[in-house]
């Protein structure tokens, strides 16, 4: 049975009418229409579904949407600066950290949370910060380089 509640995503309040057992990932994608957040494993392993809840990275596949009521949800769509790419997005492109691109939104959300908390992370800290995100294309080195470059530029 559907219930009605409200979610705040990227600063916008959306009315939701959905069953209470729906996860945040499916509500973001199919109810709100924000498809930047990806469904990879749907099993809390791969990190493609990573969003920020109150600034903290969380796997949206394993978080009930209704539990996000009253909290601030940020998706990859929310980090754009108008029409300009976020520095993490630009550096991932320029460093070759994007190949198929499926892991990229989740990588960006984990990296963004890391850099907000720790603006000058060591390489080891970046590896730990991204340790919940899998990439099958790049071999990770170029993603690390993009995060390091973003930190160095800010």
């Amino acid at each position: 049975m559907n219930e009605t509640y409200e979610l705040e995503v990227n600063g916008v309040r959306y009315p939701i009418n959905a069953a209470m057992d729906r996860n945040l990932l499916s509500v973001l994608r199919t109810e709100i229409g924000l498809t930047g957040t990806k469904e990879g494993c749907d099993d809390c392993e791969c990190g493609a579904c990573m969003v920020l809840i109150d600034g903290q990275p969380v796997n949206s596949c394993s978080y009930l949407a209704a539990q996000a009521q009253g909290r601030e949800v940020t998706t990859v769509e929310g980090i754009l600066d108008g029409d300009n790419l976020h520095p993490l997005q630009r550096n991932l492109l320029e460093e070759g950290g994007v190949q198929c691109g499926f892991c990229t939104p989740g990588m960006i959300m984990s990296a963004q949370a890391l850099l907000t908390r720790n603006p000058s992370p060591t390489e080891e800290e970046i590896r730990i910060g991204l340790s919940g995100n899998l990439c099958r294309c790049t071999g990770y080195q170029r993603i690390l380089a993009a995060v390091e470059r973003t930190a160095a530029e800010s």
Partner: peptide, 9 residues
């Protein structure tokens, strides 16, 4: 435990 996202919640 898990990853940063698992540990956050």
């Amino acid at each position: 435990i898990g990853s940063p996202s698992t540990r956050n919640v």
